[in-house]
Structures are given as C-alpha cells and as structure tokens.
Amino acid sequence: KTKYLFKIATLAPAGSIWVEQFELFSAKILHDTGGEVRFRIYAGGVMGDDQAMLRKMRVGQLHGGGFTMTGISLRVPDFRVMGIPLLFESYNEVDYVRKGLLPEFKNQFRKHGLEFVAMTEVGFIYPMSTKPISNYLMFKETKNWCPSGDPISETFMKSLGITPISLTIPDVLSSLQSGLVETVYNSFYGSIIMQWFTKAHYIVDFPYGYAYGVFALSSKKFNALPAEHQEAINKAAEIYFPILLAETRKSNEESYRVLADRGNEFQKLDAETIKILKDKRDLAMTKMIPGAVSEKIYKRTVELLDEYRNQK
C-alpha cells in the first residue's frame, strides 16, 4: 500500500526522545495518508554523519534527515546564526527569534533542494569541565573542545586566545577520559545520555550557547507528493515537533536535578567574566561575517532579539 517511502537518517540514538517522537509523527502520517506515505528511520548514525547523510540525499538513497546545526550549516550556512555564543538568555527569546527567522530559513533551505519541516533542539549548552572554572582566566587555562566543522565556536575561542581541540562528538568522551580535552559543551540531558557528566564534574551554570537541529526532507521527493499528503506531513509536524521541544526542555530540567543530585558542582560566572565573554563574542562576530553567516541574517537576528527584549 505504501506509495511514497521516505528513508530518513539521524545521528540521534534509537530510543532517545528525538527518535521516539519522530516515530509518533510518522505513525500519524501513515494513518492520515491511508498508509500511502511511510517513513523509515535509520537512527544512531548508521547512515553516517550529517555530511554523509546530505551526500546520500543528493544521490537519492536517503530522502530526509534529522540534522544537527553544525552538519546542515555546511550546506545552509545562515542556519547557524542561532548558535552564536551567549546570544539567548531564555527559551522565550529562542522561540521568538526562531519564529521570526523561520520564513528566511525555509527559503534558504529550498534554494538547496531541502524542504524545512521543523526545528529540533538539544537545548542550552553549558561549559562542563574536569576543572573548576569560574572566571575568564580559568576558562583559558583548560583544554577546550570545539565540534569539528563549527566555524563559530572556533572563531569565538580563538578571539578568547584559546586554541580549541576539535573533535567529533563520538570522540569527546574518551578524550575527556584521557585528559585530551578538559572543558566541553553540552546540554544537561546530552551530558547524561552521552556520559560526559561522569568526567566533566564542574558545570558552569550560565548558558554558553544554544544547540539545535532541523528535520528536513528532499524537496524533489516532497514536491512529488500530492498536495493533501504534503498537508498531512505539515499538519503532523505542527502537532509533534512542539511536543518534542517541550519534551526536550523537560528532559533538560530533569537532568539538571539529576546532575545536582549526583553531586556535580554548579558554578556561577562572575559578571566581569560574562562581560569579557560578550565583548570578545562581538569582536569575533566581525570576523565571522560573511564567512560563517551573512550580514543580513545576523542583523535580522539581532533585530528580533531587541524587539523581544524591548517589548518586555
């Protein structure tokens, strides 16, 4: 009965909230389309990382994927704009800016043959270290990790005078263990499911940045669907992806408590350090435009953020 099979891959492990919600989402579509549209998910990175997934979408082996911001930004650079360090202070700000940027994101994705379905999130990420870090100097003295292929964190750290050690996410835990890196960045939930918290004992209780992703389909495959099936996908996305966001945030909150109960130490950054970090961030931004993100999207983001902060 299946007329349209979408093969979808993601790095998120089977059984994680991301995959669980996705399965509910695809079951809904299967039901609403009378079994004509089926999603088959390859979880846990069995199809390779984001770049391999994009390549496989290009040749038609895959028809979509749950991508990380870092990975998809190799194709759609402007999408990384919300990953600028120390940009957001609350999820309300995130939601407001995301809503404002959505039309632009959708446009840009279409230009690259991708149908933007919904955004996903890892959440706010926090510096976590094997050593106590409470001020700017301590920050610099530890060996910092940055995800491979993320020009924003790379440039930001360089402006702080840090030469980060760039590793892919699967290599982080063993490198924490061996002492190759000391300070890493992750959400509370992420640090628990990836076991990073067992080594990175000290957590700076100040959101360093925001990590997110996207669920996108191949435009070619999506456009081949009859209009009512496209509608069914969008309708299901409107139901299930907000639930996923809420679930992710709930997991992060719960994880915060788990970490505190486990005895991980939460540390405050002093105001002076935060100011230095923000100044250095602004300095770094001048170097990142237009290499990492376009001036247009950066201005729009700042505009939206000011808009939200002023209306409060």
Binding site: K143, S148, E154, T163, P164, I165, S166
Partner: peptide, 14 residues
C-alpha cells in the same frame, strides 16, 4: 605542540 606549547594545529587531524 600540545604538551610543550599548549597549542595545536586545527587542520592537522583532518
């Protein structure tokens, strides 16, 4: 570089 100068070449590993 890492041990003695606590620096490194970002492009070396790739």
């Amino acid at each position: 570089l890492r041990t003695f100068l606590s620096t490194g070449l970002l492009w070396a590993d790739p």
